[in-house]
Design a protein around this nucleic acid. Structure first.
Lengths: 257, 257
DNA sequence: TCTACGAACTGATCTTGGTCAACAAATGTA
DNA sequence: TACATTTGTTGACCAAGATCAGTTCGTAGA
């Protein structure tokens, strides 16, 4: 099944850390200048079921993936067979950009639930962008944003205590859902406790304890994978730097459009 | 003082984590296809003394910086006035790319010693790259590499114990110096203990203790800022994942040239 | 329904590394 | 030279979070 998919750089104003994503790939109706030219890219639109891999570490890189719906986990193996979760990605996120430099993927990506994924041949993308400055700008912006987000994650993970990490993680998800018109305080988590812990650099037990602690403090209500955030202010107090980072993202893409 | 500086994408085969750099900016004599066109970029070549800032957080972004010699520290302020060191950068590193997306810098960059810095107006760079695919490729590759390095740093900082972090840091520097023709086992560190600790997410005291511990174990000899690495194998054993990451970088840029 | 297995939760220890404090060495200043 | 200030080292203590162990819960398969 091949479809024409438009890329909308006006973006549903993204604006939050950890969201990891900007609405670059949406079947938008309203026409913009750059749409006509971007229609030239014929994008394969794939369905992935839970457990299906988008790509594996060491696979050759030739495709950029954009999540249109669902959630994806990226991970790699550090040293022995130990899995290291490197990211939890939701709709709007571009995957695979870190492989441009080497030509092959350094991590694996697996669907956590049923996902709809745009697949764009990178060679084609690169070729078209040569003639279309705006597409080139988009690419640079997306990658720049990813670098800045990673920097934020770095300070979060290297210096912040366990509670701040989890709070920051939840706030990021909240932002993401809210911006897409879903509830920012009531959502489901497709990651297991084990994966959350791994992603945040904590032990599973610590994550478990934090969830119950947060609940006892009235910050949230948790029932297995279902989360209800009750006290956003309280969570923000736990996660210093989140507000500042979110502010930065408010300005993202203003320059493009 | 304005000079013409060539950009050599053949690159002195970089190939190591933490090095953070590829020899994109060098006054190379040998001519290559892309050189003629890149000569069009008139690059300001600046000298910075210790303590001079290349840019400050919240500055407008309009220039990309390339370190030709010396070392630079990037940092930001997290929450209150607490400084967070986000990077230690040596010759070859491009700085400022994370600001493309927002249009302003999210961190500050300060020279740690006398530095020679190429300054390229980004608008010019962007404009020229529209007509010169190879420059565009370089940009994408550089940014892709930075993303991948950040991912590595993330796993290093989130999961590895203190000794592994310091070992990884030292091995990265070692790689860098070796590849530029300097000694990979005998070098000076322009970062203070405080900054090293901050960068690695540790306490100053821990870094200090680790240096003496490493010395007692015969891994290295340390005298203030002067380091002599004695047992690279031993250090690598402490820093799992380093070898794998270094391997990845071996292939970097092979595709470009 | 029973059983089995994995995911999640909770409690009891132990370890790593942070904090506090004192001191030493190096650098800067009158 | 004496003194002050910054930078680095070392020791004693403490706390955050990892590890180990046991239990409960939820889902899948017979």
């Amino acid at each position: 099944m091949k479809t024409h998919t438009l890329i909308d750089i006006s973006g549903g104003q993204s604006g939050c850390h950890n969201c990891h994503l900007f609405d670059y790939c949406r079947p938008v109706g309203k026409s913009r200048q750059e749409m006509q030219l971007l229609e030239k890219i014929t994008i394969r639109n794939h369905k992935y079921e839970r457990g299906d891999h988008l790509f594996l570490a060491n696979d050759n890189f030739n495709t950029v993936f954009i999540i249109r719906s669902g959630s994806v986990k990226t991970y790699s193996y550090i040293q022995d067979g130990e899995e290291q979760v490197t990211g939890y990605h939701l709709a709007g996120k571009l995957l695979g950009l870190d492989a441009i430099g080497t030509g092959y993927h350094s991590q694996s990506a697996v669907a956590l639930e049923t996902c709809s994924i745009c697949e764009i041949p990178f060679a084609k993308l690169e070729h078209i962008s040569m003639h279309h400055p705006q597409l080139q700008q988009i690419l640079l912006h997306v990658m720049s944003d990813e670098i800045r987000e990673d920097h934020y994650q770095l300070t979060l993970l290297s210096r912040m205590p366990a509670a701040s990490r989890l709070a920051g993680f939840l706030l990021g998800l909240s932002c993401h859902f809210q911006q897409r018109g879903y509830s920012g305080t009531n959502f489901n988590l497709s990651l297991s406790r084990h994966d959350i812990a791994n992603l945040l650099g904590l032990a599973v037990e610590t994550v478990s304890r934090l969830f119950t602690q947060f609940q006892e403090e009235g910050l949230l209500i948790v029932d297995r994978k279902h989360i209800i955030l009750n006290d956003m202010q309280g969570l923000m107090k736990l996660s210093p730097g989140h507000a500042e980072f979110a502010r930065q993202h408010q300005t993202v893409h203003k320059r493009v459009s």
